[in-house]
Measured scan of single mutants.
Amino acid sequence: NQASVVANTLIPINTALTLVMMRSEVVTPVGIPAEDIPRLVSMTVNRAVPLGTTLMPDMVKGYA
């Protein structure tokens, strides 16, 4: 099973992502692959992402 990116904290809308905000976890449904974490750093989220939420491609500006 592939690990996905999961919010390690509440990420407010329009926040630039940092490494400490994200962790990898095997979850269903599958979200952004964990190997993309380095690429996500400094990208911003377009909605509030609660703790434990899987990051989906449409949640990160410029990812999809």
Rank of each mutant, 00 (worst) to 15 (best):
N1F: 11
N1M: 15
N1T: 14
N1C: 05
N1S: 15
Q2G: 09
Q2S: 10
Q2K: 15
Q2N: 10
Q2E: 14
A3V: 09
S4Y: 03
S4I: 02
V5D: 00
V5P: 01
V5A: 08
V5N: 01
V5S: 03
V5R: 00
V5E: 01
V5C: 04
V6P: 02
V6D: 00
V6K: 03
A7E: 01
A7G: 03
A7C: 04
N8R: 11
N8W: 04
N8H: 08
N8G: 09
T9Y: 10
T9C: 04
T9P: 01
T9L: 14
T9Q: 10
L10Q: 09
L10E: 09
L10F: 14
L10V: 11
L10G: 12
L10D: 15
I11L: 05
I11P: 00
I11R: 01
I11V: 08
I11D: 01
I11Q: 00
I11E: 01
P12C: 04
P12N: 15
P12R: 07
P12I: 06
P12M: 09
I13P: 07
I13F: 15
I13T: 08
I13K: 11
N14W: 10
N14R: 10
N14D: 13
N14C: 05
T15L: 05
T15S: 12
T15A: 13
T15C: 04
T15F: 08
T15E: 10
T15Y: 08
A16C: 04
A16L: 14
A16F: 15
A16I: 14
L17N: 00
L17W: 02
L17Y: 01
L17F: 02
L17I: 08
T18M: 08
T18G: 05
T18Q: 08
T18W: 03
L19N: 07
L19K: 10
L19G: 07
L19C: 05
L19A: 09
V20I: 10
V20C: 05
V20H: 06
M21P: 01
M21C: 03
M21Y: 05
M22Y: 03
M22C: 03
M22S: 00
R23E: 04
R23P: 01
R23A: 10
S24E: 10
S24V: 14
S24L: 08
S24P: 09
S24Y: 05
E25T: 07
E25V: 13
E25D: 14
E25A: 10
E25Q: 15
E25N: 10
V26N: 13
V26E: 07
V26I: 15
V26H: 13
V26F: 09
V26S: 08
V26R: 08
V27G: 03
V27W: 03
V27P: 00
V27I: 07
T28Q: 12
T28C: 05
T28D: 14
P29D: 06
P29A: 04
P29M: 05
P29V: 06
P29T: 04
P29K: 05
V30Y: 11
V30A: 15
V30D: 07
V30N: 14
V30Q: 15
V30L: 15
V30W: 10
V30G: 12
V30S: 12
G31E: 00
G31N: 01
G31I: 02
G31A: 03
G31W: 03
G31C: 03
I32L: 09
I32P: 01
I32R: 00
I32V: 07
I32D: 01
P33D: 06
P33K: 07
P33S: 14
A34G: 09
A34H: 06
A34D: 06
A34I: 07
A34F: 06
E35F: 13
E35R: 14
E35A: 13
E35V: 13
D36Q: 12
D36G: 07
I37E: 02
I37Q: 05
I37T: 09
I37P: 00
I37G: 05
I37C: 04
P38R: 09
P38Y: 12
R39Q: 09
R39G: 08
R39I: 14
R39C: 04
R39P: 02
R39W: 06
L40S: 00
L40R: 00
L40V: 05
L40N: 00
L40P: 00
L40M: 08
V41Y: 04
V41F: 06
V41D: 03
V41E: 06
S42G: 13
S42D: 09
S42H: 13
S42E: 08
S42K: 08
S42R: 09
M43S: 04
M43K: 08
M43R: 12
T44G: 05
T44P: 12
T44E: 14
T44N: 07
T44I: 10
V45P: 02
V45G: 00
V45A: 07
V45L: 08
N46P: 03
N46V: 10
N46E: 08
N46L: 13
R47D: 11
R47L: 11
R47Q: 13
R47A: 13
A48W: 13
A48H: 12
A48M: 12
A48Q: 13
A48T: 14
A48I: 07
A48C: 06
V49R: 03
V49Q: 02
V49Y: 02
V49A: 09
V49P: 02
V49T: 05
V49N: 02
V49G: 01
P50Y: 08
P50Q: 10
P50A: 14
P50F: 09
L51D: 09
L51A: 13
L51G: 15
L51R: 14
L51C: 05
L51H: 11
G52T: 02
G52W: 04
G52L: 03
G52Q: 04
G52K: 03
G52R: 04
T53Q: 15
T53N: 12
T53R: 07
T53G: 09
T53F: 12
T53A: 14
T54W: 02
T54Q: 03
T54M: 03
T54G: 03
T54K: 04
L55W: 02
L55T: 02
L55E: 02
L55G: 01
M56R: 07
M56D: 06
M56N: 06
M56G: 04
P57C: 04
P57V: 05
P57K: 07
P57W: 09
P57S: 12
D58K: 07
D58F: 12
D58H: 14
D58W: 11
M59V: 13
M59F: 12
M59L: 06
M59Q: 04
M59S: 06
M59P: 02
M59R: 03
V60E: 00
V60Y: 01
V60R: 01
V60S: 00
K61V: 15
K61G: 07
K61W: 15
G62Y: 10
G62Q: 11
G62K: 08
G62D: 09
G62T: 12
G62A: 10
Y63L: 06
Y63M: 05
Y63C: 04
Y63R: 03
Y63Q: 04
Y63K: 03
A64N: 10
A64M: 15
A64E: 13
A64W: 07
